[in-house]
Simulated assay, not measured.
Amino acid sequence: MIDIRHYDIIISPVITEKSTMVSDNNQMVFKVAERATKPEIKAAVEALFAVKVKAVNTLIRKGKMKRFKGFIGRQNNVKKAVVTLADGQSIDLSAAI
């Protein structure tokens, strides 16, 4: 059952060269809310995409210091989740976006 809170947990899919390479191993990468836990991420992916999740690994990419037109700024921290899907399961991100 889809709960409105699932949309607050999963922010967006990460579509990079590295994330498309891990899709060969039946894994997907999502940008998630910073306070989201692994069980919440698992429940949200299972409900939103109707797939069976095998495992969830998370990481936090620390924000970098950047200079823009002479001013120093800092990017926000980003939490990512690498979701391993059960055998035979897949998510078509081209249709989901």
Rank of each mutant, 00 (worst) to 15 (best):
S94K: 13
Q75A: 09
R5E: 13
E34I: 13
S23P: 00
S19A: 11
M65Y: 05
M1E: 07
A81G: 05
S19F: 05
I9N: 04
K66H: 03
M21I: 06
R35A: 14
K79Q: 06
V45L: 09
K18N: 13
I2H: 07
Q89A: 03
K79S: 03
A36V: 08
T84G: 02
L59A: 13
I10M: 08
F49S: 07
A55S: 13
R74I: 01
N57T: 10
T84L: 09
I2E: 13
T58I: 13
Q89R: 01
F71I: 06
I2Q: 14
K54G: 03
V22Q: 01
R61E: 15
K62A: 10
Q89M: 09
V83K: 04
I2K: 15
T84R: 12
K38D: 15
K38V: 12
V78C: 03
N25H: 03
V14K: 06
F68N: 02
I41W: 10
V32I: 08
G63R: 04
T37V: 08
A33V: 00
V83F: 06
V45A: 04
N77P: 01
N26F: 01
P13F: 13
D3M: 05
K38A: 14
V83S: 07
F68G: 00
K42V: 07
I9R: 04
S19R: 08
Q75L: 06
H6K: 01
N26Y: 03
T16F: 06
V29D: 02
F49Y: 15
N26W: 03
Q89E: 15
A47G: 11
Q27E: 15
A86C: 09
K54C: 02
V14E: 12
N77S: 08
I2S: 14
I72E: 14
N25I: 00
L48F: 11
E17K: 10
N76Y: 01
G70H: 02
V32L: 05
I41N: 11
I4E: 15
I97R: 10
I15M: 11
I2T: 12
P39A: 09
K69P: 00
A86F: 00
D92C: 03
D8F: 12
R35L: 10
L48T: 10
V51W: 03
F49W: 10
Y7V: 02
K31L: 12
R61F: 01
T84K: 15
P39L: 07
M21L: 09
I2L: 14
I2R: 15
D8A: 07
R67A: 02
A96I: 11
F49M: 11
D92R: 08
M21E: 14
D24R: 10
R35W: 07
D24T: 02
A95R: 12
N77M: 01
L85F: 09
T20V: 14
V45P: 03
N57Y: 09
A86K: 09
I11T: 07
